[in-house]
Design a binder for these strands. Structure first.
Lengths: 212, 212
DNA sequence: AATAATGGATAGCACTGCTATCCAATGAAG
DNA sequence: CTTCATTGGATAGCAGTGCTATCCATTATT
């Protein structure tokens, strides 16, 4: 398959695929001559994956690059794999969060929550949580202890189900953790919206209407 | 307080505040002369809110504008309020999702999940869910029925806690729902990462390391 | 009266994610 | 074996977002 075929199969313009090739997001095709290359199914998959990560996952192309690097180099240990996967996701999401000076109080609270759950106190994640709690406070909608407990419980339940879906083979596991987590993040938030509508309606009867 | 004071109290550059004023994201100060205006606490709050929504909430300025409009015009009914709040959030998040042609199968599955939960079948939300499930499939990480059930359960638990935090006064309720939901979305996903690390470590012992 | 700051307007800038154009080398068609 | 479209490769440009910098006449401040 030549580049035009790749474009046709994926629905992505040739110029954009050339751009992805330049950026190293899609591997070069097998050169059949100095000005011609041949592409296969793995190229089709790659292009589709890039689009899924950007369009549904909300990643930037820089983030996609990190995720792809993680996918191409799956660590042997399942736990190390998770670390690599999260590293790729977090790098994109929280660019400048780490260096931000965050108050001592909120940082301690974040650490306390993590400790109470017995979670591993990952410095990047904890800093992230602290910033988020601080921002909520600043915006006038502080997260109460009870509310936070419920969020933690929900996270634990979800994480248990997440890990249960991870296959044994390293490459497949990596894909499942990285891409699966990213895409189901969005699903989880959508479901939260549904459930909020339901809970709200339960209080007041059905005067519901479409949103959007 | 003059504009320089507003800049100092919020940590946002004067030029940026002028930009927000131009864009209508922050209300004009009270004019004390033709070339001078006075700003108060509500202006400080607004600037901080804009930053919280963009930096932690991940909204574009266009999205911030919608959210602020909703905050400034809180409906009387709590349920209508939730609709307005979600409308403001969804408009920014799912720009071109609705018109996207999505397969019949995945659409039916989304509707089935919503029906099984007894949720209100909001067309925008359902379309969104269908697109997300389709994208996960396309990316090679389909969401299984059991996994989806767990996500739904978690969403319901979280939503119950969410609604419990909503105060009675319409303006405060609006702020809580819109800003609170947006900011705790991020918190929820961070907690999910923590819990995933924990679950992963439980299987293999503590060979964990920092991510990022 | 001198200096500094203000609001208002306009222009520009850095970054992202493409898109369009050009080119020589090549492959397919008659 | 010539013609003509297509390819890979390179370079430049473009639209949108979120600021940032400069200028200016007017107004405070000292």
């Amino acid at each position: 398959m030549r580049i035009s075929g790749l474009a046709e199969r994926t629905g992505v313009p040739v110029a954009t695929i050339k751009y992805y090739l330049r950026e190293g997001l899609v591997p070069a095709g097998e050169a059949t001559s100095r000005t011609q290359a041949s592409y296969g199914d793995r190229h089709v998959d790659r292009v589709r994956l890039v689009r899924a990560l950007t369009e549904s996952g909300g990643l930037s192309l820089a983030g996609v690059r990190d995720v792809l690097a993680a996918l191409d180099d799956p660590p042997a240990s399942r736990h190390a794999l998770l670390g690599a996967a999260q590293g790729a996701l977090l790098a994109d999401e929280s660019a400048d969060v780490a260096d931000d000076a965050v108050g001592e109080g909120v940082r301690r609270r974040a650490a306390a929550v993590v400790a109470a759950r017995g979670w591993y106190d990952d410095p990047v994640l904890t800093a992230r949580l602290a910033v988020q709690l601080r921002d909520a406070e600043r915006a006038g909608v502080p997260v109460g202890d009870e509310h936070l407990e419920v969020l933690c419980d929900a996270a634990e339940r979800v994480a248990r189900a997440d890990l249960a879906t991870v296959p044994a083979a390293p490459a497949a596991a990596m894909r499942q953790v990285v891409v699966g987590t990213l895409l189901t993040d969005a699903v989880l938030l959508t479901l939260r919206r549904f459930a909020q509508q339901q809970e709200s309606g339960r209080d007041e009867g059905a005067d519901g209407q479409s949103v959007g």
